[in-house]
Design a protein around this nucleic acid. Structure first.
Lengths: 196, 196
DNA sequence: TTTTTAAAAGAACGAACATTCATTTATATT
DNA sequence: AATATAAATGAATGTTCGTTCTTTTAAAAA
């Protein structure tokens, strides 16, 4: 029995990401991918059931990686600001070292493949994060609020900074560059908003 | 000379929006649009140069509408919190009354058509907003900070709430519904972050 | 070494794609 | 009423699409 070439499979995955990010969903096709990966179109159907399966598999894999990265070293029993600091550091680290993946992930969340990607991931986030929040509220570190409000104030600014960063352009004239300093400056503002 | 049917043109625009939002860029085609709008494919090429022109025209039009709505009644000389309140109200009003348009606008910003849509819009925002910010800093209402940090803290939470709203689903178990109350609760947190 | 089996390939399929062409239709002007 | 002209059409263009077919290739098992 001929053995599957894992390296070839990796190349397909990588080229798919590159193509999807550079050309968008509308410019992505199985034949282009096959050409880019130096593979027969038929080979793609050994690795994936069809085009949808390919896109969703890659999307789900990135989602899992992201989720895992986010909770690395995160202790739901930790003090509020400390826990939040870990979350910000984890998210920023992952995003800066996986720009291609994150761009694709944002793309897929604004596409018809939306649901499939985020279902499990949201569930895991909810489970771990709600314990952390419950603790913080009980310890009087933060006011009770709908989790959507919390999420929006706590993380949306960070994601937005990173979006400015990877778009390369800015609202101001000079190009915006994300840095540790800017991140923690923003973090302090967010803490000021959330902490009692 | 036969006169152009403006009503028909409107239907094409509306159906294009509906199709793009429900099927995504990858599921959108000129032939599908023609069928949905009860029009010959050739007619689309009377209204638009090609597919790209169609998508971008619609995107740009929404961008202009959004920008106009945002600055309605906005006075750059106003006090910081008051000015921000106008901005939040304007943005929320527009988004809630143009959900389809906003979904499409988010889609296009995460696609290859990105640049073309936001160029002018960002320029106008920068011009008007920088005066407002300069005033607020001089009046000691808010600390100086990079405009990207300001934007991320000031508006990203609002956009994120509205995203939760239109996704219909939530992090929590119950479906999330955007409301005036939740909006101003979030606004207060953001003000706490930004104001001196 | 031979057999077995799945990986991989290349050519091919009909379907759908963006766009154009030749023609018809409706209206404003003469 | 006749003419001019741009709107609108349906059919057709060649191209690319996703996917499958048949065949070849490579490695594990015999």
């Amino acid at each position: 029995m001929r053995i599957r070439d894992e390296h070839k499979e990796q190349i397909v995955k990588q080229k798919a990401l590159e193509l999807l990010v550079s050309q968008g969903f509308e410019g992505f096709s199985m034949q282009k991918l096959a050409r880019a990966a130096n593979v027969s179109p038929a080979t793609l159907y050994i690795y994936y059931r069809d085009k949808e399966d390919l896109v969703m598999s890659i999307g789900r894999e990135i989602g899992k990686q992201l989720n895992q990265a986010i909770f690395k070293g995160f202790n739901p029993e930790a003090a509020f600001e400390e826990g939040m600091r870990v979350q910000w550091r984890n998210r920023a680290n992952f995003m800066l070292s996986h720009e291609l993946e994150m761009t694709f992930y944002e793309q897929i969340k604004n596409s018809t493949f939306r649901e499939a990607v985020s279902a499990d991931i949201v569930a895991e986030f909810k489970e771990k994060m709600s314990i952390f929040m419950k603790n913080a509220i009980e310890k009087n570190e933060v006011k009770a609020m709908p989790i959507e409000v919390f999420w929006s104030v706590a993380y949306a600014p960070l994601y937005n900074l990173l979006r400015f960063h990877s778009e390369g352009k800015s609202i101001g004239g000079r190009p915006f560059v994300f840095s540790e300093e800017i991140m923690w400056q923003t973090f302090d503002l967010v803490m000021k908003a959330l902490k009692n």
